[in-house]
Amino acid sequence: MMKKFLLSIVFALGILCSANAQLPSVTLKDINGKTVRTDTLSNNGKPFIIDFFATWCKPCNRELTAISEVYEEWQEETGVKVIAVSIDQAQNINKVKPLVDSHEWPYEVLLDPNSDFKRALGIQMIPYTLIVDGNGNIVYKHNGYTEGAEQELIEKVRELVNK
């Protein structure tokens, strides 16, 4: 009985701790070759969304395109920023900028060709989306994309902004 109680306490603490995890420190490059440390990503105290994608991932591309169609309104309403992180491997990295440009995605785009950032966050599958609050805490995680799922994202961001 006591063992089950202790296990449930440890499990609950694990959930609480992982719910407000900070971003790990991984050094990446942005789409223009500038070095960026992931633990310094921010949005001036406002929430931001990190969306992991790959050029070959159709659901990822649909998600980023769907967000881009409402992104301006989201920014006006909440000040949210989207950071797209490509996990394309080194040999395909040259396909990322043309894809971003062809879709006219207005996001900051980071390159994670060795999946270091993805691995540090324990991400298995893409698309994978995180919401980070204004204090740098990961407050929401979502795997996969179905049409309309971007509405859930903005609802979570609104909750943070209206706290």
Rank of each mutant, 00 (worst) to 15 (best):
Q22E: 14
Q22I: 02
P24Y: 04
P24R: 03
S25T: 06
S25K: 15
S25E: 09
V26R: 01
V26T: 10
V26I: 11
T27M: 09
T27N: 05
K29G: 00
K29P: 00
I31R: 08
I31D: 11
N32I: 00
N32S: 07
G33C: 02
K34E: 14
V36I: 11
R37T: 13
R37L: 03
T38I: 08
T38K: 07
T38G: 04
T38F: 09
D39A: 12
T40V: 04
T40K: 12
L41H: 09
L41M: 10
L41F: 12
L41A: 04
S42H: 15
N43I: 08
N43A: 08
N44C: 03
N44E: 13
K46M: 11
K46G: 06
P47L: 11
P47W: 08
F48V: 06
I49G: 02
I50Q: 03
D51K: 03
D51N: 15
D51Y: 06
D51P: 04
F52Y: 13
F52C: 12
F52R: 07
F53L: 01
F53K: 00
F53R: 06
F53G: 05
A54Y: 04
A54I: 06
A54N: 04
A54C: 08
T55V: 15
T55C: 06
T55M: 01
W56S: 11
W56P: 07
W56I: 05
W56K: 01
C57T: 10
K58E: 12
K58T: 13
K58N: 03
K58G: 02
P59S: 09
P59D: 12
P59N: 10
C60N: 11
C60Y: 02
C60W: 10
C60K: 00
N61P: 00
R62C: 05
R62A: 14
R62D: 11
R62E: 12
E63V: 04
E63R: 07
L64G: 08
L64F: 01
L64K: 06
L64N: 14
L64E: 13
A66E: 15
A66S: 12
I67E: 09
S68N: 15
S68G: 09
E69V: 01
V70I: 14
V70Q: 14
Y71F: 10
E72D: 15
E72P: 01
E72G: 05
E72V: 08
E72Q: 15
E72A: 14
E73F: 02
W74H: 11
W74P: 07
W74F: 08
Q75K: 15
E77A: 14
E77V: 10
E77C: 02
T78A: 03
G79P: 05
V80T: 12
V80W: 10
V80E: 09
K81D: 05
I83S: 13
A84N: 09
V85C: 05
V85W: 05
I87L: 05
Q89M: 13
Q89G: 11
A90C: 00
Q91K: 14
N92D: 09
I93A: 15
I93F: 01
I93G: 01
N94H: 06
N94P: 00
N94Y: 10
